[in-house]
Computed example of a mutant assay.
Amino acid sequence: MTTYKLITAKDKHDLARLACDVIASSIDLVLDQRDRCSLTLSGGSTPQATYESLAREHLPWDRVDVFLGDERWVDLNDERSNARMIRGSLLASGPGAKATFHPIPTLEFPSPEQSASAYSTLLQKHCDGAPPILDLVLLGLGNDGHTASLFPYSSALNVTDKAATVCRGNGLERVTITSSVLSSARKVIFLVSGKSKNLALNRLQDFSEPLERTPARLIQPNTEVLILADRLAVEGTL
């Protein structure tokens, strides 16, 4: 059974600093043991401040491979693109710019399905194991309980034989890493901020909660899942 450890920050600014420290320490630990570190990041507004802080950390960034947990099937320069946000924060300047970024390909392929197939191949190329094993995965948590682009009751929840698949969420086609790969990661962190996440955070930690309704519960690594949340997200939770 998956276990969770919840650490609460006083506000979103404290949360960004906390997440930065945890991720930086985790990267250091991985690189003490292996030649390279595979770091998988989430999109959305919550982690951007974390990435901006992380970019200033003096780490062996030239030995870090950065992947995305999911991506909207839009041009990579579109303001809705997670890749654009990563390039404008972690990779914009400072030490973090030395990391090797592997964005999810989008409109260079004629369909989201072909994009997902290409990203599956890329993950398998860079990561050992079947499914591919990522060192560190940072995930968000949607108000509806989704994570990456694994949305409630979607067919993507049942895909376990591929590293990446397609899902439609909030009116857009998306490419997402599958739950089987996310669950194979050596370390999984959820970053949760805001009062609107109260219900989803409760459901994530509720072992009786249906997986289809709260897909974030599908992420079940062998190690303890770390939840970093601000006080507003935690108020009223279990």
Results as ranks from 00 to 15, higher is better:
146 H>N: 02
171 G>F: 15
173 E>L: 15
153 Y>K: 07
172 L>E: 05
147 T>N: 13
121 T>N: 08
187 K>Q: 13
141 L>F: 15
189 I>R: 05
181 V>N: 06
161 D>M: 10
112 P>T: 00
110 P>C: 00
175 V>G: 04
160 T>A: 14
153 Y>M: 02
111 S>R: 08
166 V>A: 00
135 D>H: 09
151 F>E: 01
122 L>C: 05
159 V>C: 07
150 L>V: 04
121 T>I: 08
124 Q>N: 15
114 Q>L: 12
123 L>N: 05
153 Y>Q: 04
179 S>V: 07
126 H>Y: 14
138 L>V: 15
176 T>K: 13
128 D>C: 04
179 S>N: 15
110 P>Q: 01
132 P>H: 12
135 D>N: 15
136 L>W: 15
160 T>E: 09
175 V>L: 07
155 S>G: 06
176 T>R: 09
142 G>K: 10
115 S>R: 03
185 A>V: 04
152 P>I: 00
124 Q>K: 12
114 Q>S: 07
172 L>H: 13
172 L>D: 05
173 E>M: 09
182 L>E: 02
151 F>Q: 00
124 Q>I: 09
189 I>E: 00
179 S>F: 14
179 S>I: 05
131 P>H: 06
113 E>Q: 11
144 D>H: 11
123 L>D: 02
112 P>V: 00
158 N>Y: 13
123 L>R: 08
120 S>D: 14
120 S>Q: 12
170 N>A: 07
154 S>V: 02
161 D>W: 15
185 A>S: 12
161 D>H: 11
168 R>I: 06
179 S>Y: 14
177 I>Q: 05
171 G>E: 03
141 L>W: 09
156 A>V: 06
150 L>G: 03
126 H>M: 07
140 G>Q: 10
145 G>A: 05
135 D>T: 07
139 L>H: 11
178 T>L: 15
112 P>F: 12
127 C>I: 01
115 S>N: 02
189 I>T: 04
185 A>Y: 13
147 T>S: 11
174 R>F: 08
111 S>D: 00
186 R>I: 04
118 A>S: 04
173 E>C: 15
129 G>S: 03
134 L>V: 06
125 K>Q: 10
134 L>F: 14
134 L>A: 03
113 E>Y: 15
180 S>I: 12
169 G>E: 01
174 R>S: 03
135 D>A: 09
168 R>K: 09
112 P>D: 00
139 L>W: 10
170 N>Y: 13
161 D>F: 14
187 K>A: 04
165 T>K: 09
129 G>D: 01
186 R>N: 11
166 V>P: 04
189 I>W: 13
142 G>T: 06
187 K>D: 02
165 T>E: 06
132 P>V: 04
151 F>I: 03
149 S>V: 03
125 K>I: 03
125 K>Y: 11
149 S>P: 11
127 C>E: 01
134 L>M: 12
156 A>H: 08
149 S>A: 13
147 T>G: 08
153 Y>F: 11
182 L>W: 15
164 A>P: 05
149 S>W: 10
135 D>F: 12
147 T>P: 09
128 D>A: 12
152 P>L: 02
117 S>V: 01
133 I>L: 08
148 A>H: 08
121 T>E: 06
189 I>Q: 03
179 S>P: 04
165 T>V: 14
165 T>H: 14
155 S>F: 08
